[in-house]
Design a protein around this nucleic acid. Sequence first.
RNA 1: GGAGGCGUCGCCUAGUCCGGUCUAUGGCGCCGCACUGCUAAUGCGGUUUGGGCUUUACCGUCCAUCGAGGGUUCAAAUCCCUCCGCCUCCGCCA
Length: 425
Amino acid sequence: MIDLRLLREDPDRVRASQRARGEDVGLVDALLSADERRRSSGARFDELRNEQKSLGKLIPKAGPEERAELLRKAEQLKADVKAAEAAQNEADESARQLLLQLGNIVHPDVPVGGEEDFAVLETHGTIRDFAAEGFEPKDHLELGEALGAIDVERGAKVSGSRFYYLTGVGALLELALVNAAIAQATEAGFIPMLTPALVRPRAMEGTGFLGQAAENVYHLEKDDFYLVGTSEVPLAAYHMDEIIEADKLPLRYAGFSPCFRREAGTYGKDTRGIFRVHQFDKVEMFSYVAPEDAEAEHQRLLAWEKQWLNSLELPFQVIDVATGDLGASASRKFDCEAWIPTQGKYRELTSASNCDGFQARRLSVRVREGKKIQPLSTLNGTLCAVPRTIVALLENHQQADGSVHVPAVLRPYLGGREVLEPITK
RNA sequence: GGAGGCGUCGCCUAGUCCGGUCUAUGGCGCCGCACUGCUAAUGCGGUUUGGGCUUUACCGUCCAUCGAGGGUUCAAAUCCCUCCGCCUCCGCCA
């Protein structure tokens, strides 16, 4: 959530941000009046409660007659206090509900518009010219099946569409990617973390995934658990309700977990292969930093993502995601998109978001510097989302005979193998 | 799944049986001041968090906060209910 004080002091800035997101600006005014109601009902309750307390002190000391009189007054007050408390709770709750609907304040440099209105910031690597090399590139599924690495037919048989098995060298490839990614993150100072994949509503809501994104979240009704779509959720909630000393920051975690996504509303989109699936594993970077350090950390996360993709020898571009595609909790988001030869376009492989104090405020994670206590800033960035990375690797590193070149960074985790060969039988 | 115990403002802890004197005790740690060649020791003061009001800030002040939420009562850390978490034992199970 955003800072209520900011809303009070500079509502126009919040309105402008809502407008840029293409969201309802009326929400801001509703929130302002709810906040006003919250404050006045709170003051009323405080006043009555104070009166009740002073009266309560007199009762045990009073003589019999006086006592009866006081009790009569106290009884009346009891009803008033109860009503005032109910009014206060109601006002608090309605203000909170409105506040939860409001997305983060958008960074002024973010391009305004929908999904297609992103700005390309930089490009890396060289796109291969398969025509010049004299062969037609195969897509990742065809390659993966030939390698004995991917089985989507049986994935569908067992679990339905958008499920898959990674088999043989495919399974090894995932483990190699995960190990290499964790190694890079550890080298950079991240603490490796294996996190819960099932979380309570508070963690999900606090991370901002129960708003517009809710339809993409799996929910276990019987136990009221949510399946996380990213380890960002358990990593953000890790320090929930804590106050962290300023000299402990930055705190950096590299989470590895399965990720579950319903992919509602994507029917017919990316249906072939393992580009868009309901379950996958991912290594995620997560940072807790002082508010003034957030933008610099955002750049650092992006730099680590670029380092990773470069080490995989993948051609990619970096984009500044447009306002309409930010998601509720990000104030700014940089995606790295790898070139997918058979699609002839760049597709998202990693995503780095600066959430400022948005998640920290919802999850009550604060930093203490001297006497000052304030929400800190949280940021997250993908290091390696496994299936998509496999897609990009297979397609970009394929050779005319259907074998696949292995980047040096993965070889130590693949028994030194430099090439993956199709299975003959 | 069954039985029992527990949860107090950084950590430990008193208080809960028997409601008001709790404005929550004491110790440790930490911060400030005093004293002191330095350090240590000692003395005095301070030290939960959130929200209002006031305010440049400080200070001050009010309300809430004893795991969470409800209830009883004029009044709840204390009594009742529900939930959450931790511990012990039993059962079951990777």
